[in-house]
Amino acid sequence: MNSMFISAIESAIDYNNCFQRMCPYKCVLIFYIYVRTVNVVTIVILSRGKCGLSEGVTRYLVAMVAADQLVVLFDLVLSKIPVTYWPIEFVNWSGRVRVCNIHAVLFYAATDCSVWFTVTFTFDRFVAICFQELKRRFCTGRAAALVLGTVTVLICLKNICWYFMLDELFSSLNRSLICLTSDRLFSHSQLATFLLIHFLLTPIFPFVLILLLNSLTIRHVFVASRARRRLRGSRVGETAADPEMKNRRKSLLLLLVMSGNFILLWALLTVCSVWESLIFYIYSIPPESLRELGYMLQLLSCCTNTALYAVVQARFREQLKETVKSPLRLMAKCTRRCQDCINAR
């Protein structure tokens, strides 16, 4: 039983195994450069405010992309560096300054922010679609900034606990840096309680909350659509356009695409998290291959925002095309000027 418990803890904090055996470090770096590029482009396009989205929605989407960027940075780059890439002096120094502990706090804080920003965005759209009287008061840019800031502070305070969960030592295993659990400050029951709370807050509770909010939102849209169709049909005919329902459908489409992407790519990891949180009741842990596949799907969710926005938002597609064409136009302009200078000589 103790061995299973230790395995569950190590699976929760061992963010080095996933992706390491399947791809060498150079492939990880290339993947990070790709993700960083598309996420930065997405943030720039959304920040311009030319995609036809409200200020509140724009802030939520930018925060989600930025959090995904930090997850990829802390997970793929800072924790996938083999020991052979660092001199032994750095490994000894990193143990003295608790680099492993600091990295654990940053990694889990970024992951929690990525998840809970999706929850806040889902709740914001739920309020905007289902409660029109509250939309002007709570679905604003100022409210979004306040909510995102509060969630970030609470998440950082919660994840400070990881700093005391790990020893300040590294273990060389398969040429990667592994954090060791600390059994000097906490008993198994205390560690199990913390892990249960950790799994409940991310991703079990957000997963259930997003499903619930989406179900309520879809139900409200269908009911309101039928009611407005009957009302407008009795007055101006069935073929008349309804701009209000058209705007609601657009908001619902963006909501379902973003939250659906989270649900699909986080489903397997959520199942593994529930499994691991019940270790004292079922006396088993998820297979390592299943857990690693869940981690990889979770990382994949950090680089799909650009494609999703391009599919859903026509104005975003236009801005993306313009952003891609701008450097090409600049290069062509510089080439023509250089050619003119050469011809003038």
Results as ranks from 00 to 15, higher is better:
residue 328 L to K: 09
residue 234 S to G: 11
residue 155 I to T: 02
residue 284 S to V: 10
residue 203 P to I: 01
residue 103 H to S: 10
residue 247 N to P: 08
residue 262 F to C: 03
residue 155 I to Y: 02
residue 327 P to H: 03
residue 27 C to N: 15
residue 149 G to K: 00
residue 217 T to I: 00
residue 267 A to W: 03
residue 299 L to H: 04
residue 137 R to A: 12
residue 70 L to G: 05
residue 298 Q to A: 07
residue 73 L to K: 04
residue 59 R to Q: 15
residue 244 E to N: 06
residue 111 T to F: 07
residue 138 F to R: 10
residue 107 F to A: 08
residue 72 V to P: 03
residue 5 F to A: 08
residue 317 R to L: 00
residue 2 N to P: 07
residue 302 C to D: 01
residue 274 V to H: 04
residue 235 R to Q: 11
residue 125 R to N: 04
residue 139 C to Y: 02
residue 45 I to P: 01
residue 98 R to M: 07
residue 24 P to H: 12
residue 326 S to A: 12
residue 87 P to E: 06
residue 278 L to K: 07
residue 163 Y to N: 02
residue 299 L to W: 04
residue 238 E to G: 12
residue 249 R to Y: 13
residue 202 T to E: 13
residue 284 S to T: 13
residue 281 Y to N: 10
residue 191 L to F: 12
residue 249 R to P: 03
residue 315 R to E: 13
residue 86 W to L: 13
residue 169 L to F: 09
residue 323 T to Y: 05
residue 187 S to W: 01
residue 325 K to T: 10
residue 244 E to M: 06
residue 87 P to D: 12
residue 219 R to G: 13
residue 174 N to P: 02
residue 343 N to D: 08
residue 125 R to D: 00
residue 109 A to D: 03
residue 325 K to Q: 12
residue 190 Q to Y: 10
residue 208 V to N: 06
residue 296 M to I: 05
residue 311 V to C: 14
residue 48 R to M: 09
residue 192 A to P: 06
residue 2 N to I: 09
residue 271 V to Y: 02
residue 170 F to R: 06
residue 28 V to H: 14
residue 15 Y to R: 08
residue 93 W to C: 05
residue 194 F to D: 04
residue 220 H to G: 07
residue 332 A to I: 11
residue 35 V to R: 01
residue 153 V to C: 09
residue 196 L to F: 12
residue 259 S to W: 01
residue 223 V to A: 13
residue 280 F to H: 11
residue 238 E to A: 15
residue 28 V to L: 14
residue 321 K to A: 11
residue 39 N to D: 00
residue 328 L to R: 11
residue 322 E to C: 08
residue 166 L to F: 03
residue 179 C to H: 03
residue 333 K to L: 13
residue 56 G to S: 11
residue 245 M to G: 08
residue 230 R to G: 10
residue 50 K to T: 05
residue 38 V to Y: 00
residue 289 S to R: 12
residue 333 K to A: 12
residue 96 R to C: 12
residue 52 G to P: 01
residue 162 W to I: 14
residue 216 L to I: 07
residue 129 I to G: 00
residue 259 S to L: 01
residue 141 G to P: 02
residue 48 R to V: 04
residue 112 D to E: 09
residue 176 S to G: 08
residue 37 T to I: 15
residue 83 V to Q: 11
residue 73 L to Y: 07
residue 137 R to N: 10
residue 307 A to R: 00
residue 274 V to L: 11
residue 22 M to T: 15
residue 219 R to S: 13
residue 11 S to N: 13
residue 47 S to R: 06
residue 126 F to D: 02
residue 238 E to I: 15
residue 146 L to A: 15
residue 250 K to I: 14
residue 301 S to N: 05
residue 7 S to I: 06
residue 282 I to L: 15
residue 215 S to Q: 10
residue 103 H to N: 09
residue 104 A to R: 02
residue 222 F to M: 10
residue 211 L to V: 05
residue 21 R to S: 11
residue 143 A to V: 04
residue 181 T to V: 14
residue 309 Y to M: 15
